[in-house]
């Protein structure tokens, strides 16, 4: 019995050796990518697609992917990648803590680490660079756009995402400053926890109260759609040049089409496209160069757009829209 197991193990090792030598023979850059599963959200789906298309064989990569929502599963996947001897490790962590040991292992093994989408609480020495979104900046871009509309008064229905989430905190922050400064009036500020139907109910309750409002600031597209449904049922016009300004976030394709049709006014992007930036940095390292353009925390902030209904084009929808 023992002999058989030994034989089996030997065979497995031979195969492993054979395969790893094949992989190296192609002269591809090996990359291990630890991400959250695409089912998490539309954002993640686009993110996963982006990485799978950029880190392909055609582009000179041999990429291995691991998807999990759980930190411990992600950690063990990262360890496996390190023992497999990947050249680069790309991580979008489920949780911000608990990564120090693994990242040290990677450093000792000579694996360069890139973080994307989410930061990790650790010594910046442990990774090469982080490509992340700045949620607070997304909120500021949106609020600045709103201020640029130069309305006589701003009576805002503010529909929030799940309280405490990164996106909610960032997108709420900028608007809260305006409320405190008195430049905009908070008609209602309520969380719909990303639930479209709840957003509709919140908007309905304002309409029923008869209080005037002229801006809907919803922290994602779905909730903006919910709010708009309430407006439609109450016979309130919305969109470009209409009674109520509608603002959403995430840039789903269907939402951008609403913009193009003039039914909504603004949609803020939260870019899931970080693969190309990381690929460029890897090429720089491969050529013996140094990565440039990092801030003090070794981050590169994704460039994010805000789309205005009066300027958006079909091309924008194809390029930046998520989903179908």
């Amino acid at each position: 019995m023992r002999k058989r197991i030994a034989l089996l193990l030997a065979l497995v090792m031979v195969f492993a050796l054979a395969f790893s030598s094949v992989a190296h023979a192609d002269d591809l850059i090996t990359v291990g990518i630890v991400n959250n599963p695409p089912s998490e959200s539309g954002y993640r789906e686009a993110n996963v697609k982006d990485f799978e298309s950029v880190f392909s064989k055609e582009n000179g990569y041999d990429a291995k992917f691991s998807y999990s929502l759980k930190n411990d599963e992600q950690l063990s996947a990262a360890r496996t990648f390190i023992t497999d001897g990947v050249d680069y490790l790309l991580i979008s962590a489920a949780e911000t803590t608990g990564w120090d040991a693994v990242l040290k292992d990677a450093q000792d093994a000579g694996v360069s680490v890139f973080l994307f989408d989410r930061m990790i609480d650790c010594d910046p020495e442990l990774f090469e660079a982080a490509v992340v979104s700045d949620m607070a900046q997304e909120g500021e871009t949106a609020v600045n756009w709103l201020l640029a509309q130069k309305l006589d008064e701003y009576n805002v229905i503010h529909i929030q995402g799940a309280m405490g989430s990164d996106a909610q905190l960032g997108r709420t922050g900028a608007l809260d400053e305006q409320f405190e400064a008195g430049t905009m009036k908070k008609v209602v500020q309520q969380t719909a926890t990303w639930d479209e139907a709840e957003a509709k109910k919140i908007t309905e309750s304002v309409i029923n109260s008869g209080e005037p409002f002229n801006v809907i600031y919803a922290e994602n597209d779905g909730m903006a759609k919910g709010a708009v449904a309430a407006l439609d049922e109450a016979g309130i016009t919305h969109g470009v040049g209409k009674d109520v300004i509608v603002m959403g976030f995430d840039c789903n394709k269907w939402a951008l089409r609403e913009l193009l049709a003039g039914n909504w006014n603004y949609d803020g992007q939260c870019s899931p496209f970080q693969a190309q930036v990381i690929s460029d940095m890897i090429q720089t390292l491969e050529d013996g160069g140094e990565i440039e353009g990092l801030n003090d925390a070794k981050q590169i902030i994704s460039v994010e757009k805000g789309f205005d209904a009066s300027e958006i084009t079909e091309e924008d929808i194809d390029t930046y829209g998520l989903g179908e």
Binding site: E40, T193, W194, D195, E196, K200, G222, K225, G226, A229
Partner: peptide, 16 residues
């Protein structure tokens, strides 16, 4: 009913 209200389904949040 949940789907038809907005003509959209978000499998993570519908009737959460």
């Amino acid at each position: 009913i949940g789907v038809s209200r907005l003509g959209l389904i978000n499998h993570e949040t519908i009737l959460i």
